[in-house]
Amino acid sequence: MRLAYRTHVRAGPGFAPDAALRAGAELRMAAGRLDDGSCPVFCSSMLNHAPLGVANYLGPRLAGHPALFLVWFTWAMRKERQVLRTLAAERLYRRRYPEHRFVFMCNEREEVALFRENGLNALFCSHNALADEAIFKPEPDVEPVYDAFYNAMMTPWKRRHLARLVPRAAHVFYESRLTGRQKTAELLDELKRLMPAHHFLNPHDAHRIEKLGWQAINTVMAASATGLCLSAEEGAMYASIEYLLAGLPVVSTPSVGGRHVFGTPETWLTVEPTEEAVRDGVAEMQARNVPRAHVRAITLAKVYEHRKRLRACVLVETDGQVDLPEDYGDAVYRRLNNWQRGLEFERLLIDDYRKA
């Protein structure tokens, strides 16, 4: 009944086909184009106010013209209410723009099954397959000094405290808009007291947290023996694929959201969510001493499987008009996690956008 009401009677702002296109941090989303101009193929993340990603902003500009929108998820989507919300949003949108197609890129096979059961076009292609392996890679000349590395939002659900017993750990962090500056600062102070031997690397004070650049983060990973993933639920977790591409084996707690799909028994160890288990897991992965180049090679093979599925999907959904490169290391697959804001979406409509 709720689905029918939202679709045919009244849609709330979260289901509206068109979102206002204006500059502002609240519009920040990852988005890019895959095509060469033959048929628009957009790939973007979804947000609460834009459940169809960049389509909710650019749809009116593309009315009457075919376009393919690939939408990926930044949070676990196994719950039925999340699927029905997406279904309502797609139905509303396609009533207005029936010439546009959608594929929902799922981070877990369980999500694929649930979406398909509800009539949505779903593909098992994790957004982590779009990470740039040219940025995240081993640095053999850097000497490891940390037992573990954790790159994550500074928020309680990331469960940093589970790393308390790891002797030497490095933390990179950033502020959550939902948590807010004051609570973020309080949590950071609490963790620093709890783990005085750990290094919190971002320059920061009570009023700001400076983000580290990708190269700096890659260097910290090179100086670390393992990567940590400690939340119970989220999306595919960007940091997890960064660890693996940089050659770090991962110690993770059980989770929902799909971060584990690029791991193997050699490169990924899942432990119970206790401080002792995390400590012991880090020690075990250090003892394995898997060569970093091997961790990366195994990971890239899995990444390329996802990119291969993406290429096949795009070819079918564009009726053969867009055939992505057979070289799965091509830059076209590696530039889609660039976060953009507001009016920057407009450049995606430029025919020669690759030069813009």
Rank of each mutant, 00 (worst) to 15 (best):
K192R: 15
A216T: 15
R208Q: 15
H198V: 08
L188T: 03
Q182V: 13
I241P: 01
P196M: 08
A206D: 13
I217G: 04
P203Y: 07
V250C: 05
N202Y: 09
L212T: 06
E234Q: 08
S224E: 05
R168D: 10
E186C: 01
H198D: 14
R208V: 12
A169W: 07
A223P: 04
D205T: 12
A206P: 01
V256R: 14
G180S: 08
A197C: 11
H161R: 12
R177F: 13
K183H: 12
G247L: 07
R259L: 10
L212N: 07
T184E: 02
G213I: 03
L194T: 12
N202S: 06
A223Y: 06
H198I: 08
P167R: 10
W157K: 09
M221A: 13
P167T: 08
D189N: 12
L228S: 08
P249H: 01
E233Q: 12
L230I: 05
P203S: 09
V220K: 03
L187W: 07
C229Q: 11
T270L: 00
E242Q: 15
E233G: 01
G227E: 08
V172Q: 05
G180T: 10
M195F: 11
V251Y: 02
G227N: 10
Q182I: 10
R193H: 12
R208D: 00
F200L: 10
A225F: 01
L165A: 10
A246Q: 04
W214E: 14
L228G: 06
G227P: 09
G213H: 00
T179E: 14
L178N: 10
Y174E: 06
E210C: 09
F262H: 08
L248T: 06
L230E: 00
E234N: 07
S255L: 07
F173C: 03
P167E: 11
W157F: 13
